[in-house]
Each structure stands twice: as structure tokens, then as C-alpha cells.
Simulated scan of single mutants.
Amino acid sequence: MIVPVESRTDVRVFVDLPWSLYRQAPGWTPPHRSSDLRFHDPARGPFFTFGTAQSFLSRDGRRIRGRITAHVNHAYNTHHGTSVGGFGFLDAEPEESVVRPLVDAAEDWLRRQGCSDVWGPMEFCLYDRVGLQIEGFERPLPMSAAHHPPGLLAILEAAGYTKKSDATVFSIPAPQAPPPFVKSVVDRCRIPGIKVRFYRPRRLADEARVIREIADRAFSGNWLYFPFPPALMQFHAEEMATLAGPANVVFAEVGGNPVGAIVVIPDLGPLLRATSGRLIPWGLPEFFRQRRAPRELLVVVIAVVPEYHTLGVAAHLIDAMVRTGIQRHARRVCTTWVDEGNFPMVNAFRRFGGTVYARYRVLEKSLAPETQV
């Protein structure tokens, strides 16, 4: 039976379900439970300031067998002039009798909202976890990556979904010095007036605004892009304040104008796995240790405004970041998802020695009623 999530108790059941589904899965990294509870709370979650959503549970008596969220990102649709809906947080026993009713419930809700198409899975928007895992099931994932059982793709394809785009999570050996090709680009591309500076924690609001402005210009051509809403920026700024020190964020400026930024934070995946997603209180000592000397790192953003894409700004950012030494204790650096159409980033990560660690697929389907012949 499919039931809507309506009460606070329902939200807690919804958030806690992956623990019962994936506890034994070698690739699953638990999310930070407190953050997930906030994310799904309409009164506190940033998405609900610019979108609407309805979550559903699959109940079999007292047993919960699956979950899904249907959502409409009004900011995205307004920006692009579309009527697209999404589904996400699809975690379920990989059986058609469980997954199909969940997907049907999400589609029905989206039709009632006036949506003509559905994309998914994506956890609300571009700036969250995006895609259905299709490779890398046996590897422990970074904290930014979603885990799905292998059988879901076939079930969704049988329900009429087709590929829209693939994305890759790369794993890169942590460099102990700027790679030769980066140094070569930095030496060759002398940009008049370029200045590299580090994040200023005491000016968090200003620094977050700069990142937002750079990202809005850098990602405007991405098919999932929409202007960064203030509430979402505030949410991620608070996360950055918790995880990032001055060396974790590097800005490039030309003539005092920001033209690029890179954000690399500690990947708390190992700690989340060790604490089962509950950092407080027992995980706090290790959290502070990993923030000072992380064993794994996560590239959250590399963004360069379009007019400087081919002028070596990214190399300047990477060179400055590596020279800080934040990676000296790290074994590896992982990326968040990199869209297959982002050829410059795909090629750059491969030149760094990056290998495919996991792969994800965004699916699409028309919600228009089928015409009878």
C-alpha cells in the first residue's frame, strides 16, 4: 500500500528507511541524519522556499518496503519556461511490485501539479544528489553520492523511462605537489591582473555570495541549472562554515572581479559509515580531527566564468589549492557528479589520473496521456 508522508513521525520513518534497506550494502554511505531531517521538513528545508514536494512510503502491514518523493522545482521551471517535475529519494526493495506503485504515485501527483515530463532520480535539484547509480555498487561512496540497488534501472526502464544523461564520480590519487601539466598551464597562461586568494571565514555571507555569483555564470549552460535561491545558498554556506577552513576554498580574481572558485572539503564518508550517520556526540572528536587532517577529500565545485574558460584560471585554482597542503594526509580525492557532457572537466579529471568510481543516470519520461490508435 502506498501512503503519503504527512506527519513528523512519517518524516522520521521516511528518513530512517535507508538504514534498514542498505545496512549490509558495502557501497552505502549513510547520510547525516540530522541534515536529512531538516532537508525534508517543510518549515526548515531550503527547497520548500522555491518548490513543492510530496513524499510517499510503501507499507506492507507494519513493514516499510520503499520510499519516493515527487517534487516540482518552481524556480527551475520559471527560469526555463518548462513544466518538468522530478522524483527522488527512491529507496526500495528492488522488486517491481514495490517500485512501480511508488513511481506511479509520484507520477500521478506530478500530473496533478500540471507537469508534462518527469526527470529522476534527483534529490530536489542540481545542487543535491542526482542520478540513479548504475556502476560502482561494491565501493564505499563519498558522502555526496547516492546508493541504489542494481535492480532499479531495469524496473524503471520497464516503466517507460529512458536515459536523459549520465554522470560520473571520479576517484583521484591525492597529489602531493601540483601535477606537471598544471604547472605548465600556470606558467604558460599569464593572465594580466590575476590574483588568487583564500576563503575568509569571518566574512561567510560575502564569500557565499561570491561563490553564488560565480556559479550562476559558470553553470548557466548546464541543462539542470537555475539561479541559486538565497535559502539554498544559506543552507550550503552553513555547511561550508562547518567543514571548510581558509585553505578549502580558493578564489581567482582579475582586476578585483571574481572569475573562478574551487571548493574542496573533507569527505566525511568514512566517519558517517563508522557512526551510522549520527555524528553527535561520539563522532565529534573524529570529525574535528578529519577537518584538520582529512584522509579523503571531496571536490564540491570548480567553477570558472565563461569568458575565462580557456585561459588557465582552473589551473591557477588547482595549483593554489594543492600548494596549501590540505591533501597531505589524504589517500584520495573524489568528485561530486560530473555530467558526461562536461568534456573539459571529464578530460581534466582523467589527466589527474582519475578513474571512474561510480556512475549515475538521470532518466526521463513524458507524463502526457498515451494516445489511442
Score class of each variant (00 low, 15 high):
residue 85 G to M: 12
residue 84 V to F: 10
residue 12 R to Q: 13
residue 46 P to I: 03
residue 8 R to Y: 10
residue 39 F to G: 01
residue 63 R to A: 12
residue 100 R to N: 01
residue 54 Q to S: 02
residue 14 F to E: 08
residue 71 H to N: 08
residue 84 V to I: 15
residue 13 V to I: 14
residue 82 T to Q: 06
residue 16 D to F: 07
residue 83 S to T: 15
residue 12 R to G: 07
residue 99 V to K: 10
residue 18 P to I: 08
residue 57 L to S: 03
residue 50 F to N: 02
residue 55 S to I: 00
residue 68 I to C: 06
residue 60 D to M: 06
residue 81 G to L: 07
residue 47 F to S: 03
residue 32 H to I: 15
residue 72 V to I: 07
residue 24 Q to I: 00
residue 90 L to K: 13
residue 57 L to D: 01
residue 45 G to I: 08
residue 40 H to L: 12
residue 62 R to W: 09
residue 61 G to P: 06
residue 9 T to Q: 13
residue 75 A to S: 11
residue 28 W to G: 10
residue 67 R to L: 07
residue 52 T to V: 12
residue 92 A to C: 11
residue 62 R to S: 13
residue 30 P to N: 10
residue 40 H to V: 12
residue 9 T to E: 14
residue 33 R to S: 06
residue 100 R to K: 12
residue 48 F to I: 01
residue 35 S to K: 08
residue 73 N to G: 10
residue 61 G to S: 05
residue 93 E to G: 07
residue 33 R to P: 05
residue 15 V to N: 09
residue 12 R to Y: 10
residue 69 T to M: 11
residue 54 Q to H: 03
residue 64 I to H: 14
residue 25 A to Y: 00
residue 66 G to A: 08
residue 15 V to T: 12
residue 81 G to Y: 04
residue 52 T to M: 05
residue 69 T to Q: 04
residue 51 G to A: 03
residue 32 H to D: 13
residue 86 G to D: 04
residue 7 S to N: 05
residue 91 D to I: 02
residue 31 P to Q: 08
residue 101 P to M: 07
residue 56 F to S: 02
residue 73 N to E: 10
residue 95 E to W: 03
residue 85 G to D: 09
residue 69 T to W: 03
residue 78 T to W: 02
residue 64 I to G: 00
residue 31 P to R: 04
residue 7 S to I: 03
residue 49 T to V: 00
residue 78 T to I: 02
residue 77 N to T: 09
residue 16 D to W: 05
residue 8 R to P: 02
residue 23 R to L: 11
residue 39 F to M: 13
residue 12 R to L: 12
residue 16 D to T: 08
residue 18 P to D: 11
residue 54 Q to Y: 00
residue 83 S to E: 15
residue 15 V to K: 07
residue 70 A to R: 08
residue 49 T to P: 00
residue 9 T to S: 10
residue 43 A to W: 06
residue 41 D to C: 03
residue 15 V to L: 08
residue 49 T to Q: 05
residue 96 E to L: 01
residue 28 W to D: 09
residue 63 R to K: 15
residue 37 L to R: 15
residue 12 R to A: 09
residue 16 D to G: 12
residue 87 F to S: 02
residue 50 F to V: 00
residue 82 T to P: 05
residue 9 T to D: 10
residue 48 F to A: 01
residue 49 T to K: 04
residue 54 Q to G: 00
residue 29 T to Y: 03
residue 75 A to H: 03
residue 91 D to R: 05
residue 98 V to S: 02
residue 32 H to T: 13
residue 86 G to F: 14
residue 25 A to E: 15
residue 26 P to K: 06
residue 25 A to N: 05
residue 7 S to Q: 09
residue 76 Y to I: 02
residue 73 N to V: 08
residue 89 F to R: 07
residue 41 D to S: 09
residue 85 G to P: 12
residue 53 A to M: 02
residue 19 W to E: 14
